[in-house]
Design a protein around this nucleic acid. Structure first.
Lengths: 219, 219, 219, 219
DNA sequence: CATGAATGAGACTTCATTCAT
DNA sequence: TATGAATGAAGTCTCATTCAT
């Protein structure tokens, strides 16, 4: 359930000389992980910075070396999740050219992961609700696939921005189902199929694309 | 933007209409309205009871004559919105027998009202996020229409609970668009059409049902 | 050692109807008195608002019904002291027409009171150091007497603003002596005599004016 | 605006001048100078050690190689200022035998420097308010001149300790005028003249002694 | 019922100080 | 010695809640 920050990479190159640097990165990472665990349990505005300190097992003052407000924490976690998401999705659907299929894969992967790790999903759902940045990141990825799908003739939707909303809203709803423990058999496939139909795929094609085996993490 | 409570109805019929009662009801209503205005601007957990008192122009202590905790306030607002929703939707789609059409009407009405009154929509979106009771009320209404639509052969979805999620998620996403000011032409119809397609309506039927004129408030 | 606020008077006329009003005034008065006691012991910036709460025997939150910052407390105490000062000095030197004598009386009264109540003096010295408002009030009183004295030919100073500084600085220094317990016999008269000489009174007249019996509180 | 410490002198003569020592002295000096700059802007108890570190461009921990507490910092700055004062005044009024004139010179020099460097004056006024040591140093210098002046028949004051207070209080008031930007023409001379009159000099002699040209820094 | 002053728990924030590097 | 991350005590401030009027 750990989260990788892109900041970590960047900072390494920007200030590689500081002595306490690796420790600082570890602390920061610990705070982000702790925040994720908390957001899995409580809503963002219910979570106090002191709770975060306790969860991360640092003292109160330490937090203020990293974040000045709760919003900064949320944003940082959002960035971290978005970054991790981009990485993993891009990797997994790397060889798939079909835009509609890529969307199906994305939706399914999210829901499957939500089922496997409801805490992660709970946190993600909440952060999506608060953090515009994370929403944009997700949208950008989906948008590309939507266009590809439309160009390839697999999808025919009326309005791209509404289609975007539909994909994200349904995927999020699926994740919420997982969090609330009301999933059904092949929940991921069924949501994906409905989404594709909503996007204008024919019922047959929707069913077929939604049930293709998922690409395996290469190695 | 006023909200009518079912409690109000009950009291009207059950108890004598003394002056004290009318005043009490007005104060309670004022608190609910104030809460709604606040939830339009700030998140539920960011909203303090002191703010509520100020917005409603009553003193702090007065709140405790009506609600015991903050949660009770949220719940009461949720109940009030749900109740108002039930009333208005039931009234408007009273004469419509087609389940699919009723769903289209519901989705469109929500989105149109969100466009007309973004504050109301903002509050609703937030409360839906927190209040399970409101979610259930919405779900019950949709569920009936889904079944009717399926029995009538207009819809063919794979799983009812997922279909439910899809309808509510897409309607909510449409409202959020309105709140964020990124609606498109005929936003309501386009969302409804996509939803119907996702629920298994044929593209032609989806388009037709989504673009039928809305029933007018009878009176 | 109690301090009377002019606000008290004003408020009585402005909001005489509030129920909890007298209690509020008592609390406010208690806070000002407590602040005075604290400023007698510690410097203004060393004094925390929690200490003030404890000294006044109210709970932490109560303070914020009256003052938002430490500065507001200092200012309020300054106003209260200035107001009390104006009252008492005006009363005592009411019948004295000689400007130089009025100055001598003022200087002596301050020093005598400082000797009698070093805590009061300690607080006053500190507040004078921080609160421009109190300094102005003092200056205004002295200024009138300086002009009168000059017009009457008893005083002849080179520059009024510097003369003002001299009077206040020497009176304050005298009070500080009292606080630090290094007063001498007839400290008040000796300081007054030096001040008058500095202001251009002849040595003989200075000695005489400084040693006249003080007016007694009438009644 | 730099401050020279007597410690510096001592070290120079007592210990070998290794490179490490020079650096150590520079750091210490930097801290004292930084403290002076800060005290010019904020009150002593408002000034934090973190600010001091930042102003001196050293890290927090470094301070503790030089001072154990905040009080030690204030004291050290006080000592430094007193030491610098002694040096400069002694040098400048070296050839003057007249006690009254020496006092006039001292008062005037302080006020002139305050006008030329209000930051320095602001810091000095504040530190005088807190640091007894600095007050004693100043007093010792003045005391000697007072006695000389009295013995020479130029001054005739009633009480030495009160005379001391008068001189220091008026000089400080003059500096405060400079800090607050409300000086007048020949402010230094006017204050000195009043002080001498207060100390019992004849008006004519006071005016003459206060307006003599100041000794120039020899060399 | 309405009021609003008082309460006090608890969150937020700062900062002097320590210590491993 | 210099550094600066970590600490945690101590302060600041808010706000849900109570209660006398």
């Amino acid at each position: 359930m750990s989260v990788k920050t892109d900041t970590e990479q960047a900072t390494h190159t920007l200030e590689p000389l500081t002595r306490g640097h690796k420790k600082k990165q570890r602390t920061r990472q610990g705070l982000l992980d702790a925040a994720l665990r908390l957001f899995a349990r409580k809503d963002v505005f219910e979570t106090g910075l002191l709770e975060l300190a306790e969860e991360a097992a640092v003292s109160t003052g330490t937090i203020y070396n990293y974040f000045r407000t709760r919003e900064e924490v949320v944003e940082a976690v959002g960035i971290a999740m978005a970054s991790e998401f981009s990485e993993s999705i891009s990797g997994l659907s790397a060889g798939v050219e079909n835009g509609a299929q890529r969307i199906a894969i994305g939706v399914r992967l999210f829901i499957l992961r939500a089922i496997a790790d409801p805490n992660w999903a709970s946190a993600l759902v909440r952060i999506v609700h608060f953090d515009k940045g994370l929403r944009s990141t997700l949208a950008m990825h989906v948008q590309a696939d939507l266009r590809t799908g439309a160009e390839q003739g697999h999808l025919s939707f009326i309005d791209e921005s509404i289609a975007l909303d539909l994909v994200i809203a349904c995927a999020t709803a699926g994740m919420r189902s997982a969090v609330e423990g009301r999933t059904v058999e092949q929940h991921d496939e069924k949501v994906a199929e409905m989404v594709l139909k909503g996007l204008g795929a024919s019922p047959v094609k929707a069913k077929k694309l939604a049930s293709l085996p998922l690409p395996q993490p290469n190695k």
